[in-house]
Design a protein around this nucleic acid. Sequence first.
DNA 1: TTATTCACTAAACTATGTTCAGTAAATAAT
DNA 2: ATTATTTACTGAACATAGTTTAGTGAATAA
Lengths: 204, 204
Amino acid sequence: MGTAERKERDRQEMRQIILDAAQRLFLDEGYEHVTIRRIADKIEYSPGTVYLYFKDKDEILCALQEIGFAEFYRRQQILSGIKNPAEKLRAHGRVYIQFALENPELYDLMFIIRAPMNSHPKDTEWEIGMRSLNVLRENVQECMKANFIKVGSVDAISFGIWSLVHGMVSLIIRERIPMIPAEHRTAFVEESLDFVLAEILEKN
Amino acid sequence: MGTAERKERDRQEMRQIILDAAQRLFLDEGYEHVTIRRIADKIEYSPGTVYLYFKDKDEILCALQEIGFAEFYRRQQILSGIKNPAEKLRAHGRVYIQFALENPELYDLMFIIRAPMNSHPKDTEWEIGMRSLNVLRENVQECMKANFIKVGSVDAISFGIWSLVHGMVSLIIRERIPMIPAEHRTAFVEESLDFVLAEILEKN
DNA sequence: TTATTCACTAAACTATGTTCAGTAAATAAT
DNA sequence: ATTATTTACTGAACATAGTTTAGTGAATAA
């Protein structure tokens, strides 16, 4: 009697349908327009139904966050083709910035918005974020091994570089830096990034 | 007949009473607990009254933002006592970080939250933010004149440094970096800052 | 054929920002 | 001093959120 299995499949399918609707809403109209009622409208069910598949709104946002991190991680992986660690670190920064500026709403959800973090138990590590940070840490470590960076702790340097790119894109996303016209943004941001990385990476 | 003048005084007084209530609510209980109804409760008026003195909630948040920027600017001014531009730049970073970590809710409102920016007309410059950025730009310019920094544009470097400190504190405030225990935060953040600034500032 | 479980909905509850008709007091006009 | 008008304020309401729940009809099990 495979009814239980089929039920579970149906359940997962419905979860996916809800997530797809939420994602399209999110990407098309932005975070603030993602409401339970609009998700329900989109899938042609009542709002209450959504709660049969997700505990609350945060759980949905969390799932979308994971989708974002999957894509983010995928892009990070492409960097492993670059052999020179200094080159790789520069490319790393560019990939980060590109992802953020191409997917501002998603980046917002992943790294800025408070909401979806509520679902993570407070004392637990934020694993999904840690995974991406580790890729950066390995890159920094390679740079140190290859003597492109000679002083400082891996953690402090990684945090510094991450903060630099995060700071740049989040100032832009949250519109705290209207001095750059939109069409020059990428160029300007990469100029700042290149400058700082050039100072950090010793010229061998 | 000074009734009109008195009325205007009363009006400003009432605005101040509302702002004080909002600020206390904001600092004591955080952004999410600042509601029109709770402000009204606190001053013992009805919610509607608040709208006789402020156009909407954003206008109140904007006013609180200005209060934050006033304090922020005041702290920046203290730096003018430091003569060595490189020293000053390092102190500048520390002042920034200290302000943010001591007043996370206020910092959030000033540099992270979307809401209060809606009040600013889209095409206008964000003057109050620009003022603080200019202090940094002058500091960077001094560093270049004194040959502590030899290459790069003032704008790109200032933006880079600002982004670095903003990135660090906003990752912390929005809990994207649980790897640092709270009691080591300031030390760790300053270690990262010192590292980057040491690389940027040439050793004369 | 009957009993039970299940998926779903409509409606309600709480809380938010915001608006508005009405009221009583302060002010101005007569 | 009396009347008219303006003003400051309130209570109730509206729209929109997230979320919960009683009830219903269909699918499943007995």
